[in-house]
């Protein structure tokens, strides 16, 4: 159940991989759409935490282009609906996420990403 909500918070945590380690790139993904309850307050609170460019790029990778390239000043209903859909309703079920810096690949199976590291990668 990787949603873009958490994907947008996730950076690579391999030892020594501290710069350019975000966002993780999706590869060979299968996605599933599942409806979720709309909560405008949550979205408004969450907005400052988002890395907007990373979100738009990853959404594009998953085939959703409903978000504007720049984060809008005004929050209208349509924008929030789109944001809700992108953040909470797109689930990545299979595939992998790759770190753009160290190329470590985190496989996703059954919607659960495997974040375990090998012994030499632990910081």
């Amino acid at each position: 159940m990787v949603r873009l909500l958490t994907h947008n918070l996730l950076a690579c945590h391999v030892k020594g991989c501290t710069s350019n380690n975000f966002p993780l790139q999706f590869q060979n993904v299968q996605i599933e759409l599942r409806e979720a309850d709309f909560n405008a307050d949550f979205l408004k609170n969450f907005l400052p935490k988002l890395e907007w460019k990373a979100l738009v790029d990853s959404a594009k990778d998953l085939g959703d282009t409903s978000l504007p390239l720049e984060q809008p000043e005004m929050l209208d209903d349509e924008f929030l609906k789109n944001l809700h859909h992108v953040l909470l309703e797109i689930h990545v079920e299979e595939g992998s996420m790759t770190c753009p810096n160290c190329k470590h690949s985190y496989p996703i199976s059954n919607g659960i990403p495997n974040m375990l590291l090998a012994e030499h990668e632990i910081g």
Partner: peptide, 25 residues
């Protein structure tokens, strides 16, 4: 947890290896 259909996002992770979440997440 998957069978029970919880709403949260799940990760297979060893907490002793540390998290990769961005600051203030």
């Amino acid at each position: 947890a998957l069978e029970r259909e919880v709403e949260g996002d799940l990760f297979l992770q060893d907490i002793g290896q540390g998290f990769g979440f961005r600051p203030g997440s």
